[in-house]
Amino acid sequence: MELKYIILILNGLTQSAILFVLGSGLTLAFGLMRVVNLSHGAFYMLGGYLGWSVVKATGNWPLALLVGGLSIALLGFLFEKTMLGRVRGNDLPETLLTVALSMIIADVCLVFWARTAITLNVPQYLNPTITILGVTYPGFRYLMMVISILIAVSLWFILYKTNLGKAVRAGVDDRETVSALGININKIYTSVFMLSGLLAGLAGVLGGSYLQLSPGGDTTILTLSLVVIIVGGMGSLLGAVISSLILGQIMSFGLAFAPQYSYFLIFIPMALVLALRPQGLFGRQI
């Protein structure tokens, strides 16, 4: 019986890992640019599909992770440069553009990839069955946790230890002053949006390996990432960490004890947060 709870907690952590990778990208872009990237789910899906094609062609999973992440970063770059930049500062058109992009990506995915569920094959060396203290758990899931911790640490490093990060944080606090100081805020916007795309693409490859990719999956993913950043506080990295940890456990235990309402359950913390602390656990008033 105890074994079961350990596995449930581990499952929760796995969920948290993917939720964090998803949510951190969204929250970064929001914190700086005040753009809710509603194509985040579509980015995730496209990244996963691209990764799937790479695995199918080469069998090389790390390469797939790289390609999935980088190509979405590139897409983010192009999108930001050619379209988002044109309506900069006007948050509603910005959001609408991302909606349009998500419609296009979701439909393009239907053209190029299978319409049934597909899943990325993880090579055996990345997915050994690991038994620790009598608990058997797939190694790939541990790997996912490690990857997401690495991502969290490097995001922290980028934000707090580099010049880019300083500019980003300053931009979050006060956009006008930053541009007045002569920092090229447009460049920073582009880099952050790319980073956000990179994270979505990585999440897509991870999610496509541990779960599956199927048409229509983008809206579920988008909703989950929105819940993560609403609970955690929009724009807060720490908030994304904490809220993905909480939501992961809720999803895991919800599935075990109230499976019929499992998807509904994750909205309860969101409702509580909205009612009691609308800016989110670690968000600032907007």
Binding site: L92, Y261, F267
Partner: peptide, 23 residues
């Protein structure tokens, strides 16, 4: 709430309704 936060909250609320109706 205002503007973009309002948008997200209403989006999430719409999804709650959808999830409830489906489940």
């Amino acid at each position: 709430t205002h503007r973009i936060v309002f948008l997200m909250i209403t989006l999430a609320f719409g999804q709650v309704c959808w999830a409830f109706a489906a489940q």
